[in-house]
Design a protein around this nucleic acid. Structure first.
Length: 796
RNA sequence: GGGCGAUUAGCUCAGUUGGUAGAGCAACUCAUUUACACUGAGAAGGUCAGGGGUUCGAGUCCCUUAUCGCCCACCA
């Protein structure tokens, strides 16, 4: 530990500063620390304080216990950091969440809790791989297949590492008092073991299954994605109405004529008088060079008053049609491949991209006089969240998690679920929250959460990308093996090897898991589960479930729900007691921060310009949980002024109480008599204590934006503007005029010093750097420890 | 189509269980080397989106309308 940082180095530079400020002779007294004579300079102070805090080891609760800062049997408080994606750098949106967590963590630590905050990063599978692929394509003109699985993974690994380093330094710049000794990564060996363990358990319980069905295919990313990874875009589209051929009795409509080469049926409403007579009939015909057989089926899904009232059914390329086809036992004919090219049809159409094929089919319809009408409509198309590719529904053999399948939950700490009872994953997600064990703030997001669960379908978890947790399943001919460890006699073929080679060795499934599968385990995979789960001294035994999750409301489905699912399933418990949802941070025009707009603000930039303390305050101040906020530099500037204000308040108090503070703080005057507070000061104390009591209460209730405001107002408007101004008169009073003058001064000096200490302590979670710096300059009598973060929180 | 949120000072937003409308920024008047110009004092600025209801009392609770924003959904 570097104790020197609290001392004022007696360098030439400082002496020079003293000379420069000599005009202010009133303050150039030997007892006033030299750096106080200058305005507060966050760029010099903040990195130094961060280093000092970090090197003290007190971010780690084990060290706090060892050094006697925290009692071993103290109540526990734990938070896991929502791991940022290793796709780039943090912006002010992250900073809001992380600052919120740091405030709570510092508060709890000072209150004596055994406090743990675990950091980490997320490998973000598709997002990261596609970013690296794009870079390689741009700089080297190579695809991932040119590089091969091993080489690509190496490149992605390097990128992820750089990204992680940036994120770590950003978190440190933020002043996050997080325990770096416990840093985790969603794709490291320990987390991989947890993933394999849970996968195997789910597989054995029949909750993970492999099935051929229509999934969301991203032709750009060359992978499947889950329903939640779809992003909808509004576009104009042509809506064509036509007949398959001249003899076909019913006209249908579509925006995608090229898919009609894969049609197997036309669905009409069984009540529809126009078409009733045709139900059950079959027509074989040639459509654009592809022989197709269309069966007319009756299905209530077909709405009589929409379009022609008849729906062409393309089971292989539409989710809805797939479901209708299932009901009527219809075949599924794939006509579009993974590159979104036509697989069937005449020579003019086969091999063409869907968009070109669409034009060709329309031309063909026109040429054969089959097109009845063509109108422009608004349409929502699905695109892939990470690559922007237009989703092509395709039939594929994929892995799924069954959310509606009952299984026996061996252990249960979830209210409303008995141990050993039959439940579904959906029920776990519902009961963990509806039973009140998990609280959400603001609570109106509960409706969003439940609504999502009600409409939830089985979760497609396999991805055809290489960066991620490989599915722990091996094949040997027709045999399938799922295990935590690879079977012996495994052939370690890479993905590039041509499949289909018959071998007598086990070959692992090529696919990787959805990144949210591993994120879902984060609350316990970061704590030594499963290896050390049974050890009562393990983090898992001590700190799980965690107390609080602070995250953006945009990932309630992706992450919050998946954590509840995974924790409920694997442990029969909840991952956290409370969820605090933060809003989005936007620019002054209300736009989201984005790379393409170039409006993103890097927290490091803020630290350079205004100081991170100011940045932290500006994020918290006036921002209610769950509501979006706007931020601009003007606002941040205001809190830079605030930091400087406290700095000057400190200078004033130390100067004004010069010679008084020793006696004032000891509570005994020079003559040995006790210093009593004057009635006026007693009244100030009462009022002050009330303010600080309510600040604590507000932090306890996670209303940190209100606590920050109260603290700001008291410090500036009450303490500085009124009390300090009033004190000037008291201190200016000439001693010998009346006997009470000296007693009044001592009383006030004691009050000012105590209150300053109180402000600095209470403000510390919000503005850790400036408060630590001031703390180091306060007279020793005021403090019990050098590091403010380990001081006791003031209680009344 | 369903759900959620927002609407408060010129701008950006707070407003705990219902009890006299708040802050920052901007603008206005004054003070001028003061702990601090990264300043202080003062004044100004609001039918709390509109309408209805409950209540002794509503920015806050209920109903309704409007506008904006977000999320979800298989109208081909």
């Amino acid at each position: 530990m570097n104790e020197d940082t609290n001392q004022v180095p007696n360098t030439g530079a400082n002496q020079e500063d003293n000379k420069n400020t000599e005009t202010k002779k009133d303050f150039a007294t030997p007892n006033i620390p030299a750096q106080l004579l200058k305005p507060y300079d966050p760029t010099e102070v903040e990195p130094r304080v961060q280093k000092q805090e970090r090197e003290s080891g007190f971010y780690n609760p084990d060290v706090c216990i060892k050094e006697g800062i925290t009692k071993a049997d103290a109540p526990v408080y734990s938070i896991i950091l929502p791991p940022p994606n290793v796709t780039g750098t943090l912006h002010m949106g992250h900073a809001l969440g992380f600052t919120t967590q740091d405030i709570i963590i510092r508060y709890k630590r000072m209150k004596g809790f055994r406090t743990l905050w675990i950091p980490g990063t997320d490998h973000a599978a598709i997002a990261t791989q596609s970013m690296v692929e794009k870079n390689i394509q741009k700089t080297e003109g190579k695809s991932r297949h040119d590089l091969g699985r091993e080489e690509l993974l190496k490149r992605v690994g390097v990128f992820a590492q750089q990204s992680r380093d940036t994120i770590v330094s950003q978190l440190q710049t933020l002043g996050a008092s997080i325990d770096w000794s416990r840093e985790a990564f969603t794709l490291d060996e320990e987390r991989n073991f947890a993933v394999r363990t849970v996968f195997k358990k789910m597989y054995d319980d029949g909750l993970i299954y492999k099935k051929n069905r229509v999934i969301n295919w991203d032709p750009k990313g060359q992978t499947t994605i889950s329903d939640d990874e779809l992003v909808y875009e509004d576009r104009k589209a042509k809506f064509y109405t036509f007949k398959y051929n001249k003899d076909f009795p019913i006209a249908i409509s579509t925006t995608r004529p090229e898919t009609k080469l894969g049609d197997v049926a036309v669905a009409v409403n069984p009540e529809d008088a126009r078409y009733k007579e045709f139900i059950g009939k079959e027509f074989s015909l040639d459509f654009c060079g592809a022989p197709i057989t269309i069966k007319i089926v009756g299905d209530h899904e077909a709405l009589m008053d929409f379009g022609t009232g008849a729906v062409g059914i393309t089971p292989a390329h539409s989710m809805t049609d797939y479901q209708i086809a299932q009901r009527h036992n219809l075949p599924m004919i794939q006509v579009i491949d993974e590159k979104a090219r036509m697989m069937v049809g005449g020579p003019e159409i086969i091999g063409k991209k869907v968009v070109e094929a669409r034009e060709i089919v329309v031309e063909w319809l026109k040429a054969n006089d089959l097109l009845i009408s063509e109108e422009e409509i608004d349409q929502r198309i699905s695109t892939a969240e990470r690559t922007g590719g237009i989703i092509e529904p395709l039939p594929k053999l994929q892995w799924f998690v069954a959310v509606n399948k009952p299984f026996k939950l061996a252990h249960s700490g979830i209210k409303g679920i008995e141990a050993g009872a039959e439940v579904t994953l959906k029920e776990i997600m519902q009961k963990a929250v509806s039973g009140g064990q998990i609280e959400m703030l603001p609570d109106h997001f509960l409706k969003t959460y439940f609504n999502w669960i009600d409409n939830l379908n089985d979760w497609c978890i396999s991805r055809q990308i290489w960066y991620g947790h490989r599915i722990p399943v091996w094949y040997k001919g027709a045999e399938v093996y799922c295990g935590i460890e690879a079977p012996t006699d495994t052939d370690s073929v890479g993905a590039d090897d041509e499949a289909g080679e018959s071998t007598d060795k086990w070959i692992q499934d090529e696919d990787t898991l959805d990144t949210w599968f591993s994120s879902g385990l984060w609350s316990f995979s970061t704590m030594g589960w499963p290896t050390k789960a049974s050890d009562p001294q393990s983090d898992f035994a001590i700190y799980h479930p965690t107390d609080l999750l602070v995250t953006g409301h945009d990932i309630i489905f992706f992450w919050v729900a998946r954590m509840i699912l995974m924790t409920g399933y694997a442990l029969g418990t909840i991952p956290f007691h409370k969820v605090l949802l933060t809003g989005m941070v936007r620019d002054m025009k209300g736009r989201k921060f984005s790379k393409t707009l170039g409006n993103g603000i890097d927290p490091i930039e803020i630290a350079h310009k205004f100081g991170m303390d100011a940045g932290r305050m500006s994020l918290i101040f006036g921002t209610a949980p769950g509501t979006d906020s706007k931020i601009d530099e003007n606002k941040i500037k205001g809190y830079k002024h605030f930091a400087n204000k406290i700095w000057n308040v400190t200078r004033f108090i130390l100067t004004a109480t010069e010679g008084l503070y020793e006696t004032a703080h000891s509570g005994v005057g020079e003559d040995g008599t006790k210093i009593n507070f004057t009635d006026a000061d007693l009244a100030l104390i009462e009022k002050r204590n009330e303010v600080f009591k309510s600040i604590s209460t507000n932090i306890d209730n996670l209303k940190i934006h209100i606590a920050a405001e109260d603290l700001y107002n008291y410090t500036w408007k009450e303490f500085a503007d009124i009390i300090l101004e009033d004190s000037k008169e008291i201190f200016a009073d000439v001693d010998n005029l009346e006997g009470g003058a000296i007693a009044k001064k001592k009383s006030r000096a004691k009050f000012l010093l105590e209150t300053l200490g109180l402000i600095i302590k209470t403000l510390h979670p919000f503005m850790p750097h400036v408060t630590q710096e001031i703390w180091s300059l306060l007279p020793a009598e005021l403090k019990t420890r050098e590091l403010l973060m380990t001081e006791k929180w003031p209680t009344f």
